[in-house]
Deep mutational scan, measured.
Amino acid sequence: GQVHVGDTTYHFPNPEEARKFAEKAAKENNLQVTQHGNTFKVE
């Protein structure tokens, strides 16, 4: 799974890890998570 936060892309071998990371980043920054397959975008 990939997580895009601003201009930075994080790669995770496990989509579940990617999702947890995205949700945590979104919560900390008052942002939203959008999911496209195994790619998550925090914005």
Rank of each mutant, 00 (worst) to 15 (best):
G1W: 15
G1V: 12
G1F: 15
G1L: 05
G1M: 10
G1D: 04
G1P: 11
G1S: 14
G1H: 13
G1E: 02
Q2C: 11
Q2T: 15
Q2F: 15
Q2N: 08
Q2M: 14
Q2I: 15
Q2E: 12
Q2W: 15
Q2V: 15
Q2L: 14
Q2A: 11
Q2K: 13
V3I: 02
V3S: 01
V3Y: 01
V3G: 01
V3L: 01
V3P: 00
V3H: 00
V3T: 02
H4R: 11
H4E: 13
H4S: 09
H4V: 15
H4P: 01
H4K: 13
H4A: 06
H4L: 14
H4D: 09
H4I: 15
H4Y: 12
H4T: 14
V5A: 04
V5Q: 04
V5Y: 13
V5M: 14
V5P: 00
V5C: 10
V5F: 15
G6V: 04
G6F: 14
G6K: 06
G6T: 04
G6Q: 05
G6M: 08
G6Y: 09
G6E: 06
D7Q: 11
D7Y: 09
D7M: 10
D7L: 10
D7T: 12
T8H: 14
T8L: 14
T8D: 10
T8N: 12
T8Q: 14
T8F: 13
T8E: 12
T8R: 15
T8P: 02
T9V: 15
T9F: 09
T9C: 06
T9Y: 09
T9D: 04
T9Q: 07
Y10E: 02
Y10R: 02
Y10P: 01
Y10I: 06
Y10S: 03
Y10A: 02
Y10N: 03
Y10G: 02
Y10V: 05
Y10Q: 02
H11F: 15
H11M: 10
H11P: 04
H11S: 09
H11V: 10
H11Q: 08
H11N: 10
F12N: 00
F12A: 01
F12T: 02
F12Q: 01
F12H: 02
F12S: 01
F12D: 01
F12K: 01
P13E: 14
P13V: 10
P13G: 10
P13M: 09
P13S: 13
N14Y: 05
N14V: 04
N14S: 14
N14G: 07
N14T: 15
N14P: 01
N14R: 03
N14M: 04
N14D: 13
N14W: 04
N14I: 03
P15V: 15
P15R: 13
P15L: 15
P15M: 15
P15N: 08
P15A: 14
P15Y: 14
P15H: 11
P15D: 06
P15G: 09
P15S: 11
P15E: 14
E16L: 05
E16Q: 07
E16K: 04
E16H: 07
E16R: 03
E16T: 06
E16F: 06
E16W: 07
E16G: 05
E17S: 07
E17K: 03
E17H: 04
E17Q: 07
E17C: 08
E17N: 03
E17Y: 04
E17L: 09
E17P: 00
E17R: 01
E17V: 06
A18C: 02
A18Q: 01
A18P: 00
A18S: 01
A18E: 02
A18Y: 00
A18K: 00
A18T: 00
A18F: 00
R19M: 07
R19Q: 09
R19H: 06
R19K: 12
R19T: 03
R19N: 04
R19F: 09
R19G: 05
K20T: 10
K20G: 05
K20P: 03
K20V: 12
K20W: 09
K20A: 14
K20F: 08
K20Y: 08
K20M: 11
K20D: 12
K20S: 09
K20Q: 13
F21H: 04
F21N: 02
F21M: 02
F21E: 03
F21I: 00
F21S: 02
F21Y: 07
F21Q: 02
A22Y: 01
A22N: 00
A22I: 02
A22T: 00
A22Q: 00
A22R: 00
A22W: 01
A22M: 00
E23P: 00
E23R: 02
E23L: 10
E23M: 10
E23Q: 08
E23H: 10
E23K: 04
E23G: 02
K24P: 01
K24M: 13
K24S: 10
K24H: 12
K24A: 14
K24N: 12
K24F: 11
K24L: 12
K24Q: 14
K24D: 10
A25G: 02
A25I: 15
A25W: 15
A25K: 13
A25L: 15
A25S: 08
A25V: 15
A25F: 15
A25E: 10
A25R: 08
A26Q: 03
A26I: 01
A26L: 02
A26D: 02
A26M: 03
A26E: 02
A26N: 01
A26T: 03
A26F: 01
A26G: 06
A26R: 01
K27L: 13
K27H: 11
K27M: 13
K27E: 11
K27A: 13
K27T: 09
K27W: 10
K27R: 12
K27D: 06
K27I: 11
K27Q: 12
K27S: 11
K27F: 12
E28R: 09
E28I: 09
E28C: 08
E28T: 07
E28H: 08
E28M: 09
N29E: 08
N29H: 14
N29W: 14
N29P: 05
N29F: 14
N29A: 13
N29S: 12
N29T: 08
N29C: 13
N30K: 09
N30I: 04
N30V: 04
N30R: 06
N30W: 05
N30H: 10
N30P: 02
N30G: 14
N30D: 09
N30S: 09
L31M: 15
L31V: 07
L31W: 13
L31K: 07
L31T: 09
L31G: 14
L31P: 02
L31S: 11
Q32S: 13
Q32T: 14
Q32L: 12
Q32I: 15
Q32Y: 12
Q32E: 08
Q32V: 14
V33M: 08
V33G: 00
V33I: 11
V33S: 03
V33A: 03
V33F: 09
V33E: 01
V33P: 01
V33Q: 01
V33D: 01
T34G: 03
T34Y: 12
T34F: 12
T34L: 08
T34R: 07
T34M: 08
T34V: 12
T34S: 10
T34I: 13
T34P: 01
T34K: 08
Q35I: 09
Q35D: 04
Q35V: 12
Q35E: 07
Q35T: 07
Q35L: 06
Q35Y: 07
Q35C: 04
Q35K: 07
Q35P: 04
Q35N: 06
Q35W: 07
H36C: 14
H36L: 12
H36E: 12
H36G: 04
H36Q: 12
H36M: 13
H36N: 13
H36P: 02
H36T: 12
G37F: 05
G37S: 04
G37K: 05
G37N: 07
G37W: 02
G37P: 01
G37Q: 06
G37M: 05
G37C: 11
N38P: 07
N38R: 02
N38W: 06
N38C: 05
N38V: 05
N38K: 04
N38L: 05
N38A: 07
T39W: 08
T39R: 05
T39I: 15
T39S: 13
T39N: 11
T39V: 14
T39E: 12
T39M: 12
T39K: 07
T39D: 10
F40N: 03
F40M: 04
F40T: 03
F40E: 03
F40I: 05
F40Y: 10
F40K: 00
F40R: 00
F40S: 03
F40P: 03
F40C: 04
F40G: 04
F40A: 03
K41L: 15
K41W: 15
K41R: 14
K41E: 09
K41D: 07
K41I: 15
K41Q: 10
V42K: 01
V42G: 03
V42Y: 01
V42R: 00
V42F: 03
V42P: 03
V42T: 04
V42H: 03
V42W: 00
V42E: 03
E43T: 11
E43P: 04
E43R: 05
E43F: 11
E43K: 05
E43S: 12
E43W: 13
E43V: 11
E43G: 14
E43N: 08
E43I: 11
E43Y: 11
